[in-house]
Amino acid sequence: MSRDYPGADAEARHGSTAHDAHAHPTPATYIKIAVILLIITIAEVVVLYIPSETEGFGLTWFQPVLIPAFLILAAIKFVIVVGYYMHLKFDDSFFLRVFGFALLIALTIATAVIALFHGISL
């Protein structure tokens, strides 16, 4: 293609070392992961409807833990996709560090901004 892809060979080389070391997941694994993701997505929607559907059954306590539940479920999906589909779990740790650092900064700033607007500014 273009010379901006100078390392096609180098990549093949690197790719092969990665294969040797960890072996990428097989298509079967990918499909299993997709099923897990489907289940979590369904879980999210179900969890959303629990409090209103179960008011009569004393499950109203569930309302306050909804937000953490969503965040945790989303985080699990996030980690699975990034780890398996984007191969971050198997790839060079350099990518993990680059992505992780940016994510850390983004999360910290987002948390601080939200806190400034909704809490401690008063």
Partner: peptide, 18 residues
């Protein structure tokens, strides 16, 4: 450097904690 931005905002009334 990513944790000091509000020092440009010390007159905004952000509050003592900030």
């Amino acid at each position: 450097g990513f944790g000091v931005w509000a020092h440009h905002m010390f007159t905004t009334g952000a509050g003592p904690v900030a």
